[in-house]
């Protein structure tokens, strides 16, 4: 970071004022140099919110019907402390579709971790599982 001349001057005057009687040319020079170096070190950061995703998510699972699909998904959810609030499923021939409303507010895990767990399960069972925040569906289908 490069400082303008007047900025440098202001910085120097501030250092002199702060030091009061102790101010000497060497001391002021050292302080100003180290301050400028500190400023150049890293670009100023903006505060970034680190909020965990919470609230209700919609889980949709598709695939060929097989034993243990519901069991694997629900036991994983309960292990993660997620609350299943609603569940509906349909079978069309051999094809299976399940939709769940899951509340992850009280879970120790956030959405990304639950998604990773579900990816693991869907890989094993050869099905597809999607997890999307409920807000998306509310925005799209409710006015």
């Amino acid at each position: 970071m490069k400082l303008k001349e007047d900025e440098l001057r202001r910085l120097t005057l501030m250092a002199i004022e702060e030091l009061g009687d102790k101010a000497s040319p060497e001391l002021v020079k050292n302080i100003v140099t180290s301050t400028v170096n500190k400023l150049s070190g890293e670009v100023e950061k903006l505060p970034v919110s680190e909020d965990k995703t919470s609230g209700r998510i919609i889980l949709t699972a598709f695939g060929l019907n097989a034993t243990g699909i519901v069991a694997s998904i629900t036991s994983a959810l309960s292990e993660y402390g997620c609350d299943i609030q609603d569940l509906t499923q349909k079978l069309m021939g051999d094809f299976f579709t399940m939709i769940m409303v899951v509340d992850i507010t009280d879970s120790d895990h956030d959405l990304r971790q639950v998604q990773e767990k579900m990816n693991e399960i869907s890989g094993k069972l050869g099905i597809k599982v999607f997890l999307q925040h409920e807000d998306l569906f509310r925005q799209m289908h409710r006015i």
Binding site: I58, T60, D86, T88, T97, I99, Q132, L136, F137
Partner: peptide
């Protein structure tokens, strides 16, 4: 279910 089956599948 707060959303219809079809609504979710549509998305």
């Amino acid at each position: 279910m707060p959303y219809e089956f079809d609504e979710i599948l549509e998305t």
